[in-house]
Design a protein around this nucleic acid. Sequence first.
DNA 1: TAAACGTGGCA
DNA 2: TTGCCAAGTTT
Length: 383
Amino acid sequence: MPDEAPSGEVTRPRAQTLLAPRLLAWYDRHARRLPWRAPPGTAAQDPYLVWLSEIMLQQTRVEAVQPYFLRFKERWPTVEALAAADIDHVLTEWAGLGYYARARSLYACANEVAERHGGKFPRTQDALLELPGIGPYTSAAIAAIAFDVPATVVDGNVERVVARIFAVETPLPRSKPELRDKAATLTPQKRAGDFAQAMMDLGATICTPTKPKCSLCPWNDACVAKARGIQDELPRRDAKKANPTRRGIAYWLVDPDGAVLLRKRAEKGLLGSMIEVPSSDWIVGATPDVPDGAPAAAEWQRLPGIVRHQFTHFDLELTVLAATVKARNTDGLWTLPDNFGDVALPTVMRKVVAHAMKHTAYTPNDAAQMFEVAEKPKRRKKI
DNA sequence: TAAACGTGGCA
DNA sequence: TTGCCAAGTTT
């Protein structure tokens, strides 16, 4: 029997109205302290920092985001500062975090906010949804966390918590609409931002994908999955098909100064707008023949070993070929390894760099030191 | 609707 | 070593 619901509020059984206060009480005691998060129940947070953190957190763990968030916050403290930045500097700062379309959308969004919204983020979910890189999750998260709008925030954590609380046995992603609707029945009218973060904290620390810590859960007495003993099996998922393996060749070309030829990838698509060691196409099947995709004619020497990398939808195996040239005979970004930290090299390309520097002695003096630079470019000097 | 789109930690 | 999958969005 549904309660009488105030206008705009989701109708829900009476028992469910008790759940949100219990979770908020748990959150008041157990909220993780994160650099983008104000303490529970305190003043509103800077919408710019909420937005920045939420974009970074898309499909990305808190631990991976933290150093990136702190560097962005320090370097670009406001949305106007970010909008005024050089996009390549933004991509360089993003390098290693993955899903690089997020960084391009981040920059586009900053410019829209700066130019069309007077530097202020819109306060409604619908208006936020219009901005680049902001979808259903992020619009709800910003509305709730930055503006205290009672929006329902649904991410992977919330889906897992809700699937267990209500024992939803339909596999993901088919169950998404049902999980969203059930999550909406839990969302309170007040402290929706804290509630959203509480749900995500609960999912991240208690209601974990494997071995959930039900004894510590503020909702354990209400959880249908736990009552049935199937909490470890939920949420179910449709089987995924195996990833294919693609193969290619990376070309490590060095000039007499020790500068290495790099180039910028196509603006969009895989690793869009990022910097790479020139390479062939990456194709399913056998490794392409030399000199497929080679940036110049040279006496290419195959380096021992292979560079492996896993993307979301395929595995990659790169053979690395190296050569030296007497002059910079082809266009590109000839870059000294000391400066690799200043370019937007994605992780797969850092692996190529590390591999090439390990197996070439093109700088006889201290290849080892340069290898270290390639392996750990995150601690780089300011540009 | 389904595929594309990164990376890293952990079992 | 391999597979899972995480504070999702875009096309």
